[in-house]
Design a protein around this nucleic acid. Sequence first.
DNA 1: TCAAAAGTGTTTATTGTACACCCATGG
DNA 2: CCATGGGTGTACAATAAACACTTTTGA
Lengths: 230, 230
Amino acid sequence: MVLNNYRKEDKVLLAIDCIIFGFYQEELKILLVERDFEPAKGEWSLIGGFLKNKENLDEAAARVLKNLTGLSNVYMEQVHCYSKLDRDPAERTISVAYFALINIAHHCKEILRENPIKWFDIKDVPELIFDHNAMVKDALLLLRNRASNKPVGFELLPEKFTMRQLQKLYEAILDTELDKRNFINKFNSFDLLNKLKEKDMSSSKKGAFLFEFDEEKYHKKVEKGFSFKI
Amino acid sequence: MVLNNYRKEDKVLLAIDCIIFGFYQEELKILLVERDFEPAKGEWSLIGGFLKNKENLDEAAARVLKNLTGLSNVYMEQVHCYSKLDRDPAERTISVAYFALINIAHHCKEILRENPIKWFDIKDVPELIFDHNAMVKDALLLLRNRASNKPVGFELLPEKFTMRQLQKLYEAILDTELDKRNFINKFNSFDLLNKLKEKDMSSSKKGAFLFEFDEEKYHKKVEKGFSFKI
DNA sequence: TCAAAAGTGTTTATTGTACACCCATGG
DNA sequence: CCATGGGTGTACAATAAACACTTTTGA
């Protein structure tokens, strides 16, 4: 019969690192920051912070994201907890990675000017500090998984988008080419999009009809047993 | 330009909780322990422990499992990190859940007698302390996902098993009924099993042929682009 | 001899994949 | 008037699902 004493257990520093995904120019991007403190000052890094006593991890991740981008109510999900002994050379630190999906149209441009941060194409991520490259890899795998099984892709698009944008988004996330007719047929078979009267005239002379994701319709279908698969 | 000082950041207690899956009597089971210390003494709980300064989380999870079961080299995977402020009423504790897949044939029976632990059918899990029921739920979802995409099921079976056992295992994990002809045809199409000359005579008069999973064959196929899907 | 589990293929339905031409329009 | 991206449907292939009878043998 043991009387446990929590007091004698070791405590650790718990960090949060955010893999912030965005989509523009038909490519999937992530937002990186040039670290302005030691260790590893001057190198590219994920956006991070430490967990505070009075918040949970989801809140900490949202706080870290808001500090950098000004955005709240962003789709975020925990990826994994990283705990290698020497992952941070300064001190033993455990880090929980989160990914965030942000709509670049919402993202204040000023922040990009005020901070030493930059969007990188997911295929062109530089060498990052610590184990951050592994975090990006794991986050991307998780994003692929989520995007295949839940309509999370819309988090990365403007409210109104063309079918071509939607297709390019899935191509970027899944790193594959898709046939446009098959893609549209499949998506239409879900019956989750509303076709608007408006057209986007920016990418062609004919113009392309805009669509919006009908979240309410989606939830009703889910209740009736529908499950999104792409 | 900030000079970061890690020292002023809050530190936390980091726990590990293990969802230990086993399979017998054609049912998926989990191993639970009756807690013998406060808080929540006498209630059912996952097996847990605290992270030490000199180990990473995978090592801590393996240690916790070995302390209880005596088993090492067990398939384990991180599930999620739980951080609600008051999840442990005694003190602010963050917990990382791991699931483990153990082959009950390997599991020393003595441990079950020496410890206040018990196998519960996954469909009959009692009320657990803290957020442990949520952990079990998440672990089960992850296990379903893994079992559908990787041949992890064999971790739960003896080295030699019948096709019926394999089918019942998948039925238990996926919580669904499968047609035996379709199941066998599909599994055979993967060409991952070796049919042995031996029969298992314990479940019928006719006897059922035993099979084993050919891990080497599996790895060779994966290299050639094969991907397990069931 | 019969109860109980093992073993085995075919047909049909569903889903995925490949593929090419006309449309609308601004420059 | 033509270059550019938008929009549409059908045939074939692959995979999934439904389904029933014979075999073996210990009790």
